[in-house]
Amino acid sequence: MGAITLKESYPVEAGDFSTAGEASGKIKRVLKKLGIDSAIVRRVAVAAYEVELNLVIHSMGGHMDLIVEPDYLQLNVHDRGPGIPDVDLAMREGYSTASDDVRTMGFGAGMGLPNMRRNANDFSIRSTVGVGTDIEMGFKL
């Protein structure tokens, strides 16, 4: 019998601040129920919250997929655009394209992507303007 894998998908709505944080909150609860080491849970939670807020603020909506295997956890995120023109620039700390509106809510410090990379063991990002962005984050358990 193969190892059991948990696969969950969480949709994220663009621009909907009333539900922002719900998906990453659910992910955190699931990981705590699974009894995953609290330091790892925290890293996943921080990365998941960052990416969820990115989707709410910048994207046209998307989903976050959580896959938990006995020794590895993946958080794969897909959105429906608009895509990032210069990924290298976006990965720089302090760089942000967030609007003033969003900044007044306390977001848009340009720490999102760097923060995700810092918290994950593995991190990759692919983006096509007009199509969307895929982010894959891996965490060793």
């Binding site: 190892a3 059991i4 894998t5 948990l6 699931v30 705590k32 129920k33 699974l34 009894g35 995953i36 609290s38 938990v68 006995p70 358990l141």
Partner: peptide, 20 residues
């Protein structure tokens, strides 16, 4: 010390099965 009473199982494999 942490008090681990919310988790489904000590063993991750079993916890995953239970979660399922």
């Amino acid at each position: 010390q942490p008090v681990q009473v919310m988790r489904l199982d000590e063993d991750l494999q079993k916890a995953l099965e239970k979660m399922d």
